[in-house]
Design a protein around this nucleic acid. Structure first.
Ligand SMILES: [Mn+2]
Ligand SMILES: [Mn+2]
Ligand SMILES: [Zn+2]
Ligand SMILES: [Zn+2]
Lengths: 139, 139
DNA sequence: CAAAAAAAGCAACAATGTTGCATTAATATC
DNA sequence: GATATTAATGCAACATTGTTGCTTTTTTTG
């Protein structure tokens, strides 16, 4: 079975064209995609609402997660797990946004550093957003 | 001269009712405010577009900055400077979102830790978003 | 106070988010 | 493989937010 179909099935979802295609699109791109990017790419094939609901479903399942951004555009990125969950889970990884190519990527290889907070504050989840130049744009 | 008026003047802006009121509102609240919160509070007094443009102006001047959030709601927070700038500037501070009271606050007292990135990536600006329990909700 | 410049208000439209519901497609079962 | 069951899609419709142009009003300057 295809990787994408496997993921869909593993979450108890039905295999449908939108779902397979959107998942493939994410895999092929490898960086965070904004709602307009996704919509524009698929609008000839699928309804706007269907795309919206697919993203929603994928979020709930933990297949995608939202990537915060300063520009107000919601972005989505694939969750990288070795194991497939059916439950959503925490995402403690770095989000990197390249000021040159504009692409936002998830960096799982480096740990999120421990944060020291003022007295009384208790951290549960930390997310780190870094702007700069990515490896492909360097040099 | 009032503190709010002083800030407005220092940025070469004209003193108008919306500007003073919105600035006072931010000061009184002390945490990040979403666009709907601000709009709802002032809609009886000012036009939606005027509020929108005021926030926009304050962002450009560096009086307010955007606070990223996972819920998709844009939030704005006062920039804390000892000195008053006329230029926008970088904001390297922690944003803390309390899962209990829902309030998002800027934490300037603690440093943003150094992040280690994979080879080829160069960090220019780091922003840290922490979810957890705030000092007021602890205990 | 008058002139000049800037901001506010209003209308209008674009983009995105969101729901209900009838139709269609995907799976389970025979 | 046909059929029943259940879920997903498409479409219409509406809500919210973002954004612009332009006219009127307000603020500042002299
Ligand atoms: Mn993940
Ligand atoms: Mn600041
Ligand atoms: Zn890049
Ligand atoms: Zn709290």
């Amino acid at each position: 079975m295809e990787k994408e179909v496997e993921i869909i099935k593993a979450h108890g979802l039905r295999k449908t064209p939108v779902r397979v295609d959107i998942l493939k699109y994410f895999s092929s791109k490898g960086y965070a995609l904004s709602q307009p990017e996704i919509e524009d790419h698929f609008k000839k094939d699928f309804d706007r609402v269907t795309i919206y609901r697919t993203l929603h479903t994928y979020m709930e399942c933990g297949i995608l997660h939202k990537v915060p951004s300063e520009d107000g555009l919601t972005r989505y990125a694939l969750c990288q797990h070795e194991h497939v969950h059916s439950e959503p889970h925490a995402h403690e990884h770095i989000h990197f946004s390249c000021t040159d190519c504009g692409k936002t990527t998830c960096i799982d290889s480096e740990p999120v550093p421990q944060v020291h907070l003022p007295k009384g504050f208790k951290a549960e989840e930390t997310s780190l957003f870094v702007k700069g130049t990515c490896d492909k744009c360097a040099g």
